[in-house]
Design a protein around this nucleic acid. Sequence first.
DNA 1: GAGACGATGTGACAACAGTCACGGCGAACG
DNA 2: CGTTCGCCGTGACTGTTGTCACATCGTCTC
Lengths: 247, 247
Amino acid sequence: MQHPSPAGHVPLRFAAPSMSVSLDRIADFLGTVPLFRELERTSLRSFADITREHKYGKGTVIVSEGDPGDALYVVRTGEVKVVLVAEDGREVILGVLGVGDHFGELSLIDGRPRSAHVIATATSSLLVLRRADFRRQVEQQPQVGWALLMELSRRLRQADGTIGSLVLLDVPGRVARVLLEHATPGAPATLVKPMTHQVMAQMIGASRETVSRAMSEFQDKGWLTVARRQVTIVDRVALEARARPAI
Amino acid sequence: MQHPSPAGHVPLRFAAPSMSVSLDRIADFLGTVPLFRELERTSLRSFADITREHKYGKGTVIVSEGDPGDALYVVRTGEVKVVLVAEDGREVILGVLGVGDHFGELSLIDGRPRSAHVIATATSSLLVLRRADFRRQVEQQPQVGWALLMELSRRLRQADGTIGSLVLLDVPGRVARVLLEHATPGAPATLVKPMTHQVMAQMIGASRETVSRAMSEFQDKGWLTVARRQVTIVDRVALEARARPAI
DNA sequence: GAGACGATGTGACAACAGTCACGGCGAACG
DNA sequence: CGTTCGCCGTGACTGTTGTCACATCGTCTC
């Protein structure tokens, strides 16, 4: 695939001396990514060695559904969304990925075309690992294969949960569910990373208006408070009950 | 986990001579399963060696959501369904597994509880591989790890597709989609694996009645014919168009 | 072959949720 | 400091779809 409309696409170049410095910094970063966490320093450096860094401006399409794909991407800075896009423009958000998250494994594993679009929601810097390089490394570092299995398992559980909620829950129930999913596990007052109603709506297959009404309802019931786009969960138990089928 | 209500649960026992015969037959069977297809004869036998065979009567719950899980199951004969069950009894069918399919990998990989119920839809015989045994074998046969990645990739793509269809398509669109997904492009005509409307409804999150109406509509339009529960797709192109968002 | 049971067609009705429309509010930016 | 733009709240209306109810039909068993 050619990167479509690569606004802000800036392949980095380093002179020999700064190169090794950069390698170290990239290896440091990879060490914080779950996929590579088990690796020794030297292995981290070999992975760092096969990365290329690309920058993408907000709104840039990084991969498109249907494209042949042969690279794995790791978010180093910024944020991207994984979306299905209908011909009439409607979007379903399958995931929002932040620093340390990665995407593109599926095409890398099975060689089939990209299954979704990935679009930068903020100016982002991504590490790109091409299939041949990555596979060669993984063959020498089987821990990474295992970490991949763990990650795919996590996503599959999440996807199945989403399917269940789409079928079994009404919109307020699904809103409760995303809120809980994005809540920090803190004790009495739990915070949620800010999200616009529009984004929530696209994550749960609902309209912005209905999400808005559900959020108002939850505030009226005293289940949560909102101050400057920042949601605080007051009554976690009530929300959990609302997010369970069979109202 | 203890197998819940193991009606028809009959662990097989063999005397020493017939044992090796059985091992060979099981190894033969495993060789037809994609997960183990790449393996040599001797490796197949080592996997066969760590299996136990269990039988389950129709309707038996094989694993329950929430149970701790430490085994992988391969369907040797029969059929099982993977379902989410709401407290009010409604069911979402995540998948129907036949001979050669397997389930239970997720708990085996990440050690977390079962994410869904698995229920026998026909009298079934399953090969059970326990986590410790399986992991030990996989460490010596990395091809199996790769095959697992392929399988999880396939399921993740399918799950994402299902999420997209739940959000973007109306019920007739989703009906068209399952039909196409279960169609085998035979020479004279494309046949669809027989399914009751009730099952289709639970697969796509709709009511039986609405599925019934959609099927009638498709027959009226001449897109398919039904004879004795056997669906034949006449106009595949029309169905594909109907299964695309943005009518 | 007669009953029983499950699967299927179809009509009527209610309701959840999408769509459209518009006003208000707050943040960002010139 | 005012304008602009994106985000949010809410009312009114519409429609797809679930629910209930019942008739029909095929298949299986006895």
